[in-house]
Amino acid sequence: MNTVVRLVQFAAIYFVVLVLLLGVKWLWGLSDYLVPSLSDIMKIAVSEGPNDFLAALNTLMVAIMGHGLAVVLATLVGLVGRSTSIAGNITRTAAYNLQAYPIVAVAPIIFLFLGDGLSSRLLIASMICYFPLLLSFIGVFSQPVDEVEHFYRSTGRLNWFLELRIRTFENMDKLITVVVGSGTTAMVGTIVAEFLAATNGIGYVIRKALYQNDLATILLALFFIGFLSSIYLSLLEYAGARVRKAANQ
């Protein structure tokens, strides 16, 4: 139900923007070369739609994999970063400093080393959403919940696993919000990677269309990106709600 609402909201916004664009075209008398007519957009949708949809699906799959990779990595590094050991201090310092660096600037180096295939796109997608996740995870894992932990600490029962379980449970809403929010970042990362050098995905389709001044294809690509992103985000929200419900039982 939530997915349908989200899709309807997206479609409404998309068509409002499209109508505004066509209104600007009509008002200023812009050429079809600059802003295609509605019939041209429809023609492109029919002829290129299936391929572009598959390209957007390809991008989404890479984004999901990158997102998953980032969540796993952020959890693992967050576990190290929460400790007060030397490794933990170094990890926290490195995370806080590195997150200030625009990862997308490193993307060309990744393409140089790994080529323009799946691995580069996957790595860039995960890197882009990894640092915001990591900072939140370190924050949650290292913040004591004294009202709950006190008893276990004073009776000698508080091991690292229980501590982690308490902190995760107490901050479940925050963690779910961060993971759901970073889903969009993963999609952005993948598209940026495809813009830069990849030979697959909807970013690559947009790059080609940009070189050909093909706004109809770009508009179609934007529709598919929004459509699939909405589905992914609502699925993440659904999964988050299930996790929240299971945790409270």
Binding site: E147, V148, H150, F151, S154, T155, R165, I166, F169, E170, A247, N248, Q249
Partner: peptide
Amino acid sequence: VLYAHNAERLPGW
């Protein structure tokens, strides 16, 4: 020595 106080909570699960 154990110290119990009023603001303590049990884990939510």
